[in-house]
Design a protein around this nucleic acid. Structure first.
Lengths: 237, 237
DNA sequence: AACAAGGTGTCACAATCCTGTCACATATCG
DNA sequence: CGATATGTGACAGGATTGTGACACCTTGTT
């Protein structure tokens, strides 16, 4: 659907790098590369990738040092550390300096992929604030992905949840159609603008917001849509 | 300042034991010891340590057996298994019997410490899960790993228990197929997503949730599955 | 006030994707 | 061996979704 997350690989073994890159690219990730600790560190800070894959053994600043520095600067993305068997000693420090996972070399590329995905998912989940929304007698829990209308369960599709997610994240601020398309459908897909309207229409209908004047999901003429603030029940904790 | 976590070591090599003990004590852990599988098992159940370190090679009950027994009783703390070099090939088996991590001997004491810490951290993160589930006339005890349907005992396979475990741990929240694969099948095995559906299908059938509308195990279209909240009877204590 | 021009709401429909179901081949266990 | 458990592919029925057509609304202009 969308461009995948961006992954920075810091490794000096060109061959391995190539393999990893192919592997990730094929799955739709965007790959950034660096071959020394220093460049990796700089690139991480500048490009803010969603995940960093760090080889422990690097010329100059080694992986552990890079990781420690990233953490010291409160770099938010997860770090996956690659260690070779001979580097046992480093592996230790790897876990202690804030790497979120590590993988001993040589590894199966599928396992590598599985861990990458898992780390990104976890990240995603942590970021996602669990919002509760209320539309009259309809309640929506964005975290559990469940909804009710009065006493009855209400079935929303994943696109509808994604839409609400986006609108809720922006509070009462209006969100343009373009933003919506980018966020829900991704940059690589180009549906008609009609598509957004249709989904808004369906949402409103399910939520009972189909009176004369939509109360909960409001349009900003020539601009986009926004959630009326009264719908946000609880940004938790 | 509180006492550190309690770690039970089960090993018959006195020398190694001594080293480990010093090592842990210096870091503020409280150390319990046992030199045979039987005593280790008993002590684990009685003292309920926060972590168990198990040598595979033990007189009498060996490490794998102890671990299996602990898991059968749904012992909650993580288990770190110590294996000698020759047993490396078996380490996968070790993991399959319920050990949370393993460490080949001889090991660097710093790596040992790192893994201990990592396990305890992970433990801390894991939320308390609910142990008793009810699906109409079917009851499932995740702790005892037993189930009944009406008056009859109901046999669930270990995969099915693992599935329920995961779903229950996530409360009413939806769990994606990928999460399910990672958690139940692990990073090193790669079944089709079809596999998940089939197991859900079998579970539903056994639990009697195969009416028109599945009531207990619900699908979130395009997303995954979740347990309806009414199935959770009571988190203990 | 009337009009033009583009933005929106509404909806039916076909294409596509997702899930339930099951038979069958393997794997595992005793 | 037999019995049970597990993974896979095929398939049908359902659910979801993008699209176009058309009516209606807004806005700004004569």
């Amino acid at each position: 659907m969308s461009f995948g997350p961006r992954v920075l690989i810091v490794d000096d073994e060109v061959h391995l790098m190539k393999i990893i890159k192919t592997c990730l690219t094929r799955e739709g990730y965007r790959v950034l590369q660096a071959t020394t600790g220093e460049r990796g560190l700089r690139m991480a800070l500048e490009e803010k990738p969603d995940l960093v894959v760090l080889d422990v053994m690097l010329p100059g600043l080694d992986g552990v040092a890079v990781c420690a520095e990233l953490r010291r600067l409160h770099f938010p993305a997860p770090v996956l550390m690659l260690t070779s068997k001979a580097e046992v000693e480093h592996r230790i420090r790897g876990l202690n300096t804030g790497a979120d996972d590590y993988l001993p070399k040589p590894f199966d590329h599928r396992e590598f992929l599985a861990r990458v995905k898992a780390l990104l998912r976890r990240q995603q989940r942590d970021e996602k604030k669990s919002f509760l929304l209320r539309f009259g007698d309809a309640h929506v829990d964005l975290e559990k992905r469940s909804a009710t209308r009065g006493a009855n369960p209400l079935k929303l599709t994943k696109t509808e949840f994604a839409l609400l997610d986006l609108l809720a994240k922006n509070g009462g601020k209006s969100v343009s159609r373009e933003q919506i398309l980018d966020s829900v459908w991704g940059y690589t897909y180009f549906p008609t603008t009609r598509t957004v309207d249709t989904h808004i229409y369906r949402l409103r209908k399910k939520l009972g917001d189909d009176g004369e004047q939509p109360k909960w999901i409001q349009k900003i003429q020539g601009e986009g849509y926004c959630l009326s603030e009264s719908t946000v029940v609880q940004p938790p904790e």
